[in-house]
Amino acid sequence: MARNSRYSDAICKPCVGICEWCPEQCGTHDHDHCQKCAEACRACVRSCRSMAAKDNG
């Protein structure tokens, strides 16, 4: 991202899908560490979407 790689979008889009799956799984568990993991993945989704949007201009 920092070097404006032409592959940034290609990397960010699959990360969104992967990080959307995680909270679907971890969020179903009541354990504190599972909920923290789910929230971290939700933050990752927001970040990857934002980076992909910047790359698309």
Rank of each mutant, 00 (worst) to 15 (best):
E24W: 12
A38F: 02
R49I: 00
A52Y: 08
S8V: 14
A38M: 06
H31F: 13
C41F: 05
N4D: 09
C15N: 12
H29C: 13
K13E: 05
D9C: 07
C41E: 05
R46P: 06
D30H: 03
E20M: 12
R46E: 14
C48R: 03
C22G: 06
N4E: 11
N4I: 02
P23K: 03
R3Y: 15
A38W: 02
A43P: 03
D9V: 06
K54R: 12
C37Q: 11
R3T: 14
A40V: 04
R46S: 10
D30V: 04
C48I: 04
R3V: 15
H33R: 10
N4P: 05
G17E: 09
R46N: 11
T28F: 10
K13H: 03
C26R: 03
S5V: 02
K54A: 11
N4A: 13
G27D: 00
A53C: 03
C26K: 02
A40I: 03
C26D: 11
K54I: 04
G27C: 00
T28C: 08
D55Q: 07
D9S: 05
P23T: 06
E24R: 13
E20G: 06
P14I: 01
W21P: 04
G57C: 01
D30K: 06
A53M: 09
N4L: 09
R3C: 14
R6V: 07
W21G: 15
P14L: 01
R6F: 06
N56H: 01
V16P: 09
V45L: 01
W21L: 15
M51I: 12
A2I: 15
N4Q: 09
P23Y: 01
R3G: 12
I18V: 08
K36V: 00
C19I: 00
I18M: 12
E24F: 11
D32W: 10
P14W: 02
A2Q: 15
A10N: 06
G27W: 00
R3D: 15
D9A: 07
A40Y: 08
I11R: 05
S5L: 10
E20T: 07
C37N: 07
I11C: 04
C15Q: 10
G57F: 01
A40C: 14
R42G: 00
S5K: 02
K13S: 04
G57W: 01
C44R: 06
Q35P: 02
C34D: 07
C22S: 08
K54G: 01
Q25M: 15
A2R: 15
W21Q: 14
Y7P: 05
C15L: 15
A40G: 12
H29S: 14
Y7D: 12
C22H: 09
N56E: 11
N56Q: 05
H31A: 15
D9R: 10
C34L: 04
R6W: 05
W21A: 14
C22N: 10
K54T: 08
K54N: 04
S8Y: 06
C48F: 12
A43D: 09
S47K: 11
T28P: 03
R49P: 06
P14D: 06
R6D: 10
Y7I: 08
C41D: 09
C12T: 00
A53L: 09
G57V: 01
A53V: 05
I18D: 11
K36C: 00
